[in-house]
Design a protein around this nucleic acid. Structure first.
Lengths: 207, 207
DNA sequence: AACAGAACGCTACGCTACGTAGCGTTCTGT
DNA sequence: ACAGAACGCTACGTAGCGTAGCGTTCTGTT
């Protein structure tokens, strides 16, 4: 998974792998196809990456990270909603499908699992938790809330929908989700008119 | 995925596939290996199942369902905790690894995805939601709670830990999880001594 | 007991993808 | 100009796929 990106062929190889993934999914990505599409000898691909997953992991890097940066624009609640919207958008995109394909692959490949965690998952978790802790200091989040757990639940729900239940997942779900299990400040009430058909009331969404 | 289980060789084939999965993981399962291990011609395997996933799906059937039945012993909260404990136990078991391997496979195979949903996921969701609705009728759950969302969050957190963050997942997490985002009845308080270092207080865990 | 049809075993394909070896050619920096 | 890295090309051997052809055994009728 630790590849050396400095090579003239590297970019072509990653682009080729990325294209094939978009067209035919992960099973359609083969080292032979990558080489052919990149106009490169198979040995050149193997020179830099041991597996197709490693190629894709590197190809994912620049494409994924900019999409899920954590905002610090407004209240914790609003920032959380917009970040989760970004994740939902991502999951619906080509890049997101690639990422999720690698998540699936990580079940059988410890290298992939480790790389995903070190490059994306851990950072995202950390950012989310830091944002929530800042919210705690500002009094927007009750101090006794278990932030690890909250993050598990929020993002777990997204992954669950995409990977397991295959229920539809649109941007509206972000607000429904956050308002549903939101650990807001005590006696918090949302302004009138901010309710988008979410079934939970302000009081009921309190942790 | 729609196999015909009536055949003398069927049981041996499923057992063989199951053994191989336990020993070498899903990538190690091949139609050739299944046939060899079962002491059966390769054509016989193909006669009944089109893919290795289909074989495993059927092999999973009797092994999985009995493990995650939904209890109706006590309060909703307690039943939820013990059912989630059962799921956590499952995820740590051989059967659970097999199930999760198929979940991962379902990313790339729509047949597997549909079969999993129809056989397991939808039923489990339905059982959980029915149990929670019963709780609503008894006043154990606030009527405005979004049950779909709650189930997404609870079970999503489990899948998230196992598939994505690879954080440790033990039985204690079940109570931590339920008490953390638990939509209990209004002004509910847990009895003293029931607190196992969970960071959330009774008030704070209210939705 | 005879018979038909299903189920099974066996062999042998052609195909794709894997991962590597060997060796000659081109590029790059100093 | 020269060395070393990077690359291209061909050619392997291996594994697994999915199918075809054909003969053998099992099973349940009548």
């Amino acid at each position: 998974m630790t590849a050396s990106p400095r090579s003239r062929a590297a970019a072509q190889i990653q682009d080729a792998a990325w294209e094939i993934l978009a067209e035919r999914g992960l099973p359609g990505v083969t080292m032979e196809e990558i080489a052919a599409r990149a106009g490169v000898a198979k040995t050149t691909v193997y020179r830099w990456w041991p597996t197709k997953s490693a190629v894709l992991m590197d190809a994912l890097r620049e494409r994924l990270l900019p999409r899920v940066a954590f905002p610090e624009d407004g209240s914790v609640r609003d920032d959380l909603v917009s970040q989760i919207e970004a994740v939902i958008d991502l999951f619906g995109s080509e890049t997101g499908r690639a990422y999720l394909a690698l998540v699936a692959e990580s079940m059988h490949d410890g290298e992939v699992a480790t790389a995903l965690r070190e490059r994306y998952v851990d950072d995202q978790r950390r950012a989310a938790i830091e944002r929530l802790e800042k919210g705690k200091r500002k009094g927007e989040v009750l101090p006794e809330v278990d932030l690890e757990l909250l993050v598990d639940s929020l993002y777990g729900a997204l992954y669950y929908r995409v990977l397991v239940s295959h229920a539809p997942l649109d941007r509206a779900y972000a607000r429904r989700l956050v308002d549903g299990i939101w650990p807001g400040e005590p006696n918090r009430r949302r302004p009138a008119g901010d309710d988008g058909a979410g079934p939970s009331t302000a009081e009921a969404s309190m942790i």
